[in-house]
Simulated assay, not measured.
Amino acid sequence: MIRDILVNLTQGAENDTAATFAASLAATFSAHLTGLAVTYEIDVPPFYMGAVPTDFLETQMQENEAAAAKATERFAHLAAHAGVAYDVRTLNASLGVAANNLAQMARLFDLTVVAQPDPDRPGPEEVIAETVLLDSGRAVLLVPYVQKASYGGGRAVVAWDGSRAAARALAEGLPLLHRSEVVEVLRVLRGSEADVSGDDVVRHLARHGLSARTRTLHLGPGETSVAQAILNEVSDQGADLVVMGGYGHSRLRELVLGGVTREILAAMTVPVLMAH
């Protein structure tokens, strides 16, 4: 059951889609909602300190403080409007320290909500999302920066490859799947890849009182990527949620060679619950 939700408050955007979605999620589950507002410190390497004007640093810090205060005010309005119990935590830190602190905080929450990075508005979300996913030991719900709909259950796609990460995501996603009207277990196989049966997943979900169906997609050489196949299925089925494992390969390998997780993070169009 989801009783305690943490959300990283987005700054500098016209709308905080993560906070808005988290508030509707908290209202649905009668959960307590905690927002984290970070005043980001200017992380200037020591050998550059003399070249950066002091007044520039002071102005930038004032702007960062104002952005955090605005995010806090907006969050309080969203939570109050949703009728949920809430509190706000504040933090002054560099991006790296803030990401690590959020990951540690997330260990004592049922779910952490983070916005998808917006390619047109560079911000801290990518570092935040990846750090929490890899280091918290808990699931992360990523909300698209274009998300408009509030949480409402709907149709869920469980991307299943039999991995440890997929199993963690399935277990942590059960409360959300119980709220879904339709649950599909999706297997995407490429070439001679072993056919990891979804029947066991369906049987497991049935013992949790969930009715699910399976769908298997076989990709030939040169066909679309696994991530794109998942995204296409989400679009074709009109799904509202994806549940999947994150970083089945090492993060370094995905940074260098690409991978399903990074492709999903870049192109997701519906909320995605990931676990590592």
Rank of each mutant, 00 (worst) to 15 (best):
A159S: 12
I5S: 05
I230P: 03
A37D: 03
D110G: 10
L78C: 06
M105V: 08
M61W: 00
E65A: 14
V242D: 07
A194W: 03
A23D: 01
D110L: 05
S30H: 15
L133Q: 05
V7Q: 00
R138M: 09
R190N: 09
D118F: 01
P144A: 12
N232Y: 07
E58N: 13
P271S: 07
Q116L: 09
L273T: 02
E223K: 04
A98K: 00
H249T: 15
D120Q: 14
L25P: 01
A82E: 04
A165D: 14
I42Y: 05
V188I: 15
G238S: 13
R207W: 10
S136Y: 04
G83H: 00
F29Q: 02
A26R: 03
V188K: 02
R179T: 08
D87H: 15
A26E: 03
A26H: 01
A93C: 05
G35K: 02
M1W: 02
A129T: 08
S250M: 11
L176Y: 03
T112Q: 01
A103K: 02
L91H: 03
P46D: 13
D110S: 08
L273H: 01
E65H: 09
W160C: 05
E172F: 04
A129K: 00
L95T: 08
V140G: 07
D195V: 10
L174C: 07
T224K: 14
Y48I: 09
Y247Q: 10
L133F: 06
S24L: 09
S211F: 11
T28C: 09
A37Y: 02
A19N: 01
R213A: 14
Y86C: 02
L170E: 03
R138V: 10
V196C: 08
S24M: 08
D16A: 02
A51L: 15
V113Y: 04
T28D: 09
A206C: 08
V256Q: 13
A103G: 05
G153Y: 03
N232A: 14
D236I: 08
H208N: 09
L6T: 12
R187Q: 15
E65K: 14
V114H: 04
V202Q: 10
M49A: 15
F109N: 12
D118P: 11
A85D: 14
F21C: 04
A27G: 05
E130D: 12
L210C: 06
A22H: 00
Q60L: 14
D118K: 07
A239H: 08
T39G: 07
S30F: 10
F109Q: 11
L6M: 14
H276D: 06
V242E: 07
S150A: 15
M105H: 12
G198H: 08
P124T: 09
Y40F: 11
A82P: 02
L91T: 04
R179V: 02
E73V: 12
L78W: 02
V7P: 01
R121Q: 14
E184L: 14
L33N: 03
H208S: 07
L252N: 11
L57R: 10
E125S: 00
A267G: 13
G35W: 00
F75T: 00
A98C: 01
D195N: 12
R138C: 08
A171V: 13
P175G: 06
P175W: 01
E172K: 06
A23C: 09
H178T: 02
G50C: 05
V7L: 00
D195M: 12
G83M: 01
A76L: 12
G259I: 02
T39C: 12
A37P: 00
A103F: 04
M1V: 10
E14N: 11
H249D: 13
D236E: 15
E73W: 09
